[in-house]
Nucleic acid binder design. Structure first.
Length: 604
DNA sequence: GTAGGGTTAG
């Protein structure tokens, strides 16, 4: 079912590339010669005829150039007008060199250029973009000294600064103050910025309220306002509400959706695995000649990889390359990780080796994925080799790198080498976290070194480890599997003292421990107790308990348990089924149970 | 002849 729907999505994308002639996805080299509707209209409007030369400020492409130009301007007498300085400030800010732009603004003030609301608003924007909104407010104060009346542009920039810094309550106060004290009339940008802030803290309802309010006040919401809320609803998995707003925008307000609207909706649908609708939206985009962009493709690559459909993801990347939407190392990392998780290490490796020819440099994420893949496939030598390559390439292994390697070494029984890596960590400035300890304790237990695991656990003894239910479950399982049931039981009882709530795995592991020692009464008691404690047994718990009963030839509760499983929609795993068949064949169990067992065998 | 708001993978 899933396969069919994802395939449909992908086949839809295939249709895009096959339709090369005048596809909106693949405009020919000269897009205007074979222009489909969208490009033709572009051709006819002023866009192309507008061949006014760019001002020299807009042509500034690097910082050196900007600073030289500024120096030259300051030498001229009379000084160039503030307009020209402002253009330069803006060019520098547009290159994301906010501190440089701010520096130039200060120089302007020093040499006596009469700065105005335009240049001040750029300076404030620079402060805000660097998360220094307070400095922006200081500049606002300086307006009064300079006899500049701050306008809605300046307040919008400051409002956005507060939103960037997550100071939403303050943003709301500023917003209300502007209106109440009639400091300036909020416009569509003011409302949209406030809406963005509200969405950022999850106040979708209030954001929608503000959307209604602006409309009532005669300030028509535009696509920015709608997209912001639609995206927020999609992120919060409220996809139906997002579509409601989408319909309102398109059909009632007559605002045509754009690539951002569709990308947000597609992202929301991908997160919910609603592939049919993703496919439908892609088709809709095609009909409207809205070209998917880098983000749209990235979301699809990510979704396919998470679904295990790595080949489909690779097709999307091919489309990206053809479209000139150059995939980055992050895109390929998603793909490599997808192959590694499926154990397709040859494909992962081939892709990794091809990165250089694509002009991309593998980063630590690339290496960590591959290390994980090799370790899971028990190819520890390949992993080791790659691990040494990390440092050679000038990258610094992190906690994930070390934890992955340690886990891999334990898996193949190389406890000494795992230990060596663990000891190396502090020198690398890495402090093991709970995840590292889970891996180490699990590794020790699985290699029959429960005593070591227990002493390490007590040695570390920090509060995080002591409040980690997973760590306790690992130790309980380790202890009971090597016959130290007393220790397992003690650890389990300690949970209450530590204020820890056992989860379904903890209970299951303990029940399994009791069953292993033939203590069926204790197992049954815990089985009932977990349900009463609000932690219902799962599929695994039932299978574990049934295996315990069968192994100990205690058949009293078996039929009842099978009926319960049936009622809960659970199924028997392969080893439980084979135990049943053996015991029925040996005549220990009644054949009449076969039908019930048959209905509990997993369908796939 | 200058300024403000939306999507962005691990």
């Amino acid at each position: 079912m899933m396969m069919m729907t994802t395939t449909r999505t992908i086949s839809h994308l295939h249709a895009f590339i096959k339709f090369k002639g005048d596809s909106f996805l693949l405009p020919s080299r000269n897009p205007l010669s074979s222009s489909p509707l969208g490009l033709a209209s572009l051709h006819s409007n002023s866009f192309l005829n507008n061949d006014r030369p760019l001002s020299k400020f807009q042509k500034v492409t690097n910082l050196d150039h900007a600073f030289n130009l500024f120096d030259e301007m300051t030498q001229r007498r009379p000084l160039p007008s503030v307009v020209h300085f402002t253009q330069l400030l803006n060019a520098v800010a547009k290159m994301n060199h906010f501190s440089s732009s701010l520096h130039l603004f200060k120089q302007m003030c020093l040499i006596g250029v009469p700065v105005n609301e335009y240049s001040i608003s750029i300076a404030i924007k620079c402060c805000c973009q660097m998360s220094r909104t307070n400095d922006g407010f200081a500049l606002l104060a300086s307006c009064f000294r300079r006899a500049v009346v701050p306008n809605v542009f300046i307040f919008n920039t400051l409002l956005d600064g507060l939103v960037i810094e997550n100071r939403i309550a303050e943003a709301e106060r500023l917003f209300k103050k502007l209106i109440k004290q009639k400091i300036c009339e909020p416009d569509v940008v003011t409302y949209s910025t406030m809406i963005k802030g509200l969405c950022k803290v999850g106040n979708n309802d209030i954001a929608i309220g503000l959307l209604r309010l602006m409309d009532e006040r005669g300030c028509k919401p535009d696509i920015y306002a709608y997209n912001t809320i639609i995206d927020s609803l999609c992120k919060d998995k409220m996809i139906e509400d997002a579509f409601k707003l989408f319909n309102e925008m398109v059909f009632h307000k007559g605002i045509p959706p754009n690539v951002i609207t569709y990308t947000s909706l597609i992202h929301g649908l991908c997160n919910l695995c609603r592939w049919d609708e993703v496919s439908k939206l892609l088709k809709e985009m095609e009909d409207l000649r809205i070209s998917p962009n880098f983000q749209t493709f990235s979301i699809l690559v990510d979704a396919f990889c998470k679904e295990g459909k790595v080949d489909e993801a690779e097709t999307i990347i091919d489309i990206m390359v053809e479209r000139g939407e150059a995939p980055t190392i992050v895109t390929y990392n998603t793909l490599i990780d997808g192959y590694c998780l499926r154990g397709e290490m040859t494909k992962a490796r081939t892709l990794f080796d091809s990165l250089t020819s694509k002009g991309l440099v593998p980063d630590l994420f690339t290496y960590n994925s591959l290390l994980n893949g090799y370790c899971k496939s028990l190819k520890i030598e390949d992993a080791m080799h790659l691990f040494h390559e990390v440092t050679r390439k000038g990258l610094k292994p992190d906690l994930v790198t070390y934890s992955t390697m340690i886990q891999g070494l334990f898996r193949v029984g190389r406890c000494g080498d795992a230990h060596k890596l663990f000891d190396e960590m502090p020198a690398q400035g890495l402090i093991p976290n709970e995840c590292t300890y889970r891996i180490i304790l699990d590794g020790l237990c699985n290699n029959h070194k429960v005593d070591e695991a227990l002493s390490l656990f007590h040695l570390v003894g920090d509060s995080k480890l002591n409040s980690d239910i997973v760590v306790h479950t690992i130790l309980i399982e380790g202890a009971s599997k090597c016959g130290k049931l007393d220790i397992a039981r003690a650890l389990f009882h300690d949970l209450v003292l530590k204020g820890l709530q056992p989860d379904v795995r903890t209970y299951t592991v303990m029940i399994s421990g009791f069953c292993g020692e033939g203590l069926l009464e204790e197992a049954k008691h815990l089985f009932i107790k977990m349900d009463e404690s609000g932690c219902p047994p799962n599929n695994v718990t039932y299978n574990v308990l049934l295996q315990g009963y069968l192994k100990n030839h205690n058949y009293n509760d078996v039929e009842m348990l099978l009926h319960e499983m049936d009622g809960r929609g659970y199924s028997l795993d392969a080893s439980t089924v084979s135990m049943f068949i053996d015991q029925i064949a040996a005549g220990s169990l009644d054949r009449s149970m076969l039908k019930l067992i048959g209905s509990l065998v997993q369908k796939n």
